[in-house]
Every structure is written in structure tokens, then in C-alpha cells.
Amino acid sequence: MSHKLQPEQWVENYSDKLYAYTKARVQSDETARDIVQDTFLSAWGSKDSYRGEASEKSWLYTICRNKITDHYRKSVRSLKEAGFEDYSSEYFNEQGHWKATAVPKAWAVDSSTDVVETKEFYKVLNECKDRLKELQKAVFVMKYLDDMDSDEICKELQITPSNYWVLMHRAKLQLRECLEHNWFS
């Protein structure tokens, strides 16, 4: 069965969902709003080439996803120009030992227990995730929300494996510290 587009329903049916999807994946709300708007405008512009093979919903998500990837690649280009800054000195001394201010502390829960199965916990985790810089957030989200393999992520972002591991290392250090300060203390 071939699907049909109903552009007059798009905003009502999909705008909040696409906005939530995009907001979870990019750093600023403004960028997310721009991407959602661009998604609908692009979809509108190419509606005549829609063949009805994918559902309207997944067609719109694919367009949105491509916009997000384009946005990531712009960040990758500027990061490559600026170079990766050294982040490790926030956490480690010159010998590579933990700094006293950054040493991990024991958390009240170290395994999955229902103590953290609350909305409040996930809100804090999400806030910490939102504080990550753009590309750290990108690799983290692609890995843990989209469940992609690191090789696929490197291909999509056009980065090297070592770029990926540096971004992930930094993301984990920062998230861990943020959760410790804002939830487990």
C-alpha cells in the first residue's frame, strides 16, 4: 500500500515529536528549532518526489535525521580546524593520576537498582547530557540513544576512531562528574 502525505497535518502531528527528537541530539534549543523548521520546509519542497514507499512519519524523520547529521558535520569541520583542545588536565595531573578534585567517589548505587528509577534521576542525567559540547553529545547520543556501532558513527561523522574515543572519553568524564555532583551527593 502506498502512503500519502498530508502536509496540512504535519505540524500538528509531528512538530513536537521532531523537536524532542532533535533537542535530544543537538546542543542548543535554537539549533533544534531551526532544524525542525528546515525539515518541514525541505519536506514541503520535495513532496512531489515522495513515492509513498516509507510512511509519512519515517520519511519526515529521515529528512530530520539528515539535517542533524549535516549540522554535526559542520561542527566536525570547525573542530578539525580548531584542533582538539586538551581536556585531560581538568581531571588528571601530569603523571596521568586523578587530581584530588576529580577523583571518583563511591555512588550510593553502583548497579541498576530501583533507587534511580525515578523521573527526577533521568532529568538530572538529561541535564548533564545537555551540558556536553556538541560533538561529545553527538557521539554519546549516537552510541547510547541510537545504539550505533562506533565504526558507523565514525563514518557518519567523518571522524577517525581516535577522534571518536577522545570525544567519548571526555563525554564520560564530564557526565560522570556532573551526575556525581548533582545526584549522588
Binding site: 533537542k23 535530544a24 533521568y122 532529568k123 542525567l125 538529561n126 547530557k129
Partner: peptide, 24 residues
């Protein structure tokens, strides 16, 4: 251990946050 804990709890944030997100 904490990093693995974060990894295994992150996917759930999306659905929980999406409930309250509305485009202006």
C-alpha cells in the same frame, strides 16, 4: 562501573524527556 551505569541508563532519558517537550 559508573561509566557503564551511565551507558545503561541513558537511552531512557529520551522518552521521559519527550513527554514534556513542545515546539513553541
Amino acid at each position: 562501573m559508573q561509566s557503564a551505569f551511565i551507558a545503561s541508563h541513558s537511552a531512557q532519558t529520551e522518552a521521559i524527556m519527550a513527554e514534556s517537550i513542545v515546539l513553541p
